[in-house]
């Protein structure tokens, strides 16, 4: 066995070990900064259009038919707000875990470039997740602010709602990251995800009407959907929608489990693919 002859000149390995994931996140943020106008436009434009068309337009019709007590005792807009916020967080977070993973493995192969440095596979996975978290939180602030401005939520309820939404965003983002890490070439991955996962999830998660009003054979979509778990939790936290304490625990645990499992699977697959 010969001895280590790598001079300790530039790279501080201890520092690289501790902060590696943050260096990856720094890269992702820089990359995001190239798209900031699109990110802001989606973050603000999307909710404003939604609130105007559905919240106020359809909402006024809903209010007309439900009478002054609204849905579950609140206006349609207030009913809708937790779901809209969670959807926005899910969309923002998954954008940052699915596109970059596909890009990094198959299009620009930037993940392989990272892997040639002192970074490890799990640091790379962690870094992408951190960046996704940052965008998710930023979106929660932007969207949340607009919801408050439209009186869709009471500002006092905002922190709790944001938390519920960020939880959903991260749980789903981790699952998407795991899924994207198995894709070999982009043979319609995003189209499939969009049509068969996102769209049904959005429709059948109790987003636009209480999940109990959905036919029973479709309710399972809501039960496995992070959006429903977050929305139901959020409705409880914001306007006091009745949710049993045990169910609140299930909501929380389900989202945490999605995150944990998704992240673990992704990290393992990253390590494997980077070493191929």
């Amino acid at each position: 066995m010969s001895t280590w002859i790598g001079a300790t000149k530039l790279v501080d390995l201890g520092k690289a070990r501790r902060w590696g994931a943050w260096y990856v996140a720094e890269y992702r943020l820089r990359n995001m900064s190239k798209w900031w106008s699109a990110i802001i436009a989606f973050g603000i434009g999307n909710p404003v259009l939604y609130l105007v068309s559905i919240g106020l337009g359809i909402g006024s019709l809903v209010t007309k038919s439900t009478g002054s007590h609204g849905i579950e005792g609140v206006s349609y807009l207030e009913f809708l707000a937790p779901a809209l916020l969670a959807t926005a967080c899910i969309q923002a977070a998954m954008d940052e875990t699915s596109f970059p993973v596909l890009e990094g493995f198959t299009w620009t192969r930037f993940l392989f470039a990272m892997n040639a440095t002192s970074l490890t596979g799990s640091q790379i996975t962690g870094g992408i997740m951190i960046a996704s978290f940052i965008r998710c939180v930023a979106t929660a602030f932007m969207y949340g602010g607009i919801l408050v401005a439209f009186s869709a939520i009471n500002i006092a309820h905002l922190p709790a709602l944001m938390l519920a939404s960020i939880f959903a965003g991260m749980g789903f983002a981790a699952v998407m990251m795991a899924a994207a890490s198995f894709v070999r070439d982009d043979d319609g991955f995003f189209a499939i995800v969009g049509r068969f996962i996102i769209a049904p999830m959005f429709m059948f998660s109790g987003t636009f009407y209480p999940i109990e009003k959905t036919p029973i054979y479709l309710q399972w979509i809501g039960w496995i959907s992070p959006l429903w778990h977050s929305t139901n939790m959020g409705r409880n936290l914001s306007y006091g929608h009745q949710v049993a304490p045990w169910l609140m625990v299930v909501h929380f645990a389900y989202l945490a489990a999605l995150y944990y499992i998704g992240f673990r699977v992704a990290a393992r697959q990253f390590k494997k693919r980077l070493a191929e």
Binding site: V11, K15, A16, W19, G20, V24, E26, Y27, A113, T117
Partner: peptide, 8 residues
């Protein structure tokens, strides 16, 4: 950014 990966 590549230098940052090394923590420089």
């Amino acid at each position: 950014i590549y230098g940052r990966y090394f923590g420089l």
